[in-house]
């Protein structure tokens, strides 16, 4: 146990927490936007997975991480567009469609990967980083937090931006009304379906970029089913954050750390079976839910389609 608190262990835990936490953060923020507007987005796992595949393929062929993230975002949005069509515009069951999109993305990405790469799993080149002058020289914390791909810093900035958007802007107010009391928003002359559509598309964009980050930066390759429940964890994060982006950040860091523990323990030379460590994040979700469930909040109109004039 002596090696547990060494510098290498803490450094690899922090580094891993950021790597794993960023996709959770992006997807969690995305889910928060959807939920705020009244759309329960079970399909987010599928959006992340499609983003991971699109992001990987684009980065692999273009050798540009930025193009990879762009493609990932677009792929996530493509899945989200289906969600918009079926659930927001036509008002079909959000849960059935959400499951369908997740299963469909699982099958489709695995199929596409098979036909494109057969059984090989090519890797991307090393991740380019942007060192923040001064801070990146701090031991342990520096390499983990301040020598990362610029998208990491952007994601943090995004937390503040979305928090501002929710609290201070008309857009945030409209989103909230679409989830809390869609009829009131409609009466105020704002298109509920349009508001919700844009919210779901934004979710797809963020979840897709999150998936792309997972494949391109986190793993450096694409493996079928690689999101392994990250999208569902993002839903839990959004649920417990009660509409506050800062809490999503905190949750993502916490779950990121618990997911990163596997590799960190191995680096520290401690050999706990990976299966036990893999249980950790999900066990934590359950424990957190048991302890804090009464504090979770979901908007009243969540999951219900809006049709003008219907009660």
């Amino acid at each position: 146990m002596g090696g547990l608190l060494t510098e290498t262990f803490i450094a690899s835990l922090l580094f891993g927490a950021v790597t794993v936490g960023i996709p959770l953060l992006l997807a969690g923020l995305g889910e928060q936007i959807s939920e705020k507007a009244g759309v329960l987005n079970i399909g987010i796992e599928g959006m992340m997975l499609m983003g991971a595949y699109g992001g990987f393929v684009a980065a692999y062929y273009s050798e540009s991480f930025w193009l990879g993230f762009l493609a990932g975002g677009v792929s996530g949005m493509a899945v989200a567009a289906l969600m918009v069509l079926f659930c927001v515009l036509l008002g079909m069951n959000q849960i059935v469609i959400g499951i369908a999109l997740t299963i469909g993305a699982e099958g489709l990405t695995a199929l596409l990967h098979h036909f494109q790469f057969s059984r090989s799993y090519p890797r991307l080149s090393e991740v380019p980083t942007l060192d923040i002058a001064g801070l990146s020289d701090i031991p342990v914390i520096g390499p983990a937090l301040f020598e990362r791909h610029p998208l990491v810093y952007l994601a943090i900035v995004l937390v503040v931006a979305i928090a501002w958007l929710f609290r201070r802007s008309h857009i945030g107010l409209n989103l909230q009304a679409a989830g809390d009391h869609p009829a009131a928003l409609d009466a105020a002359g704002i298109d509920v379906k349009l508001t919700r559509s844009l919210a779901v598309l934004a979710t797809g964009l963020l979840a897709g970029i999150g998936g792309a980050f997972m494949a391109d930066v986190g793993a450096g390759l694409f493996v079928p089913f690689m999101t392994h429940g990250a999208g569902f964890i993002a839903i839990v994060l959004a649920m417990l954050a009660r509409g506050k982006p800062l809490w999503v950040l905190l949750g993502a860091a916490l779950f990121g750390a618990s997911l990163a523990l596997t590799t960190a323990l191995q680096v520290a030379g401690l050999n706990i079976p990976t299966d036990i460590v893999q249980m950790l994040p999900f066990a934590m979700v359950i424990v957190v839910l048991v302890l804090f469930a009464r504090h979770s909040y979901l908007p009243p109109a969540l999951g219900l389609p809006y049709h003008r004039g219907e009660r």
Binding site: G91, I97, A100
Partner: peptide
């Protein structure tokens, strides 16, 4: 044709089911 295709079929089935219902 890898068996992942069955997953795609299931997803399509759900979507068309919801569509017919709608």
């Amino acid at each position: 044709v890898p068996n992942f295709y069955v997953l795609v079929l299931v997803a399509l089935l759900l979507i068309f089911l919801a569509l017919v219902e709608y």
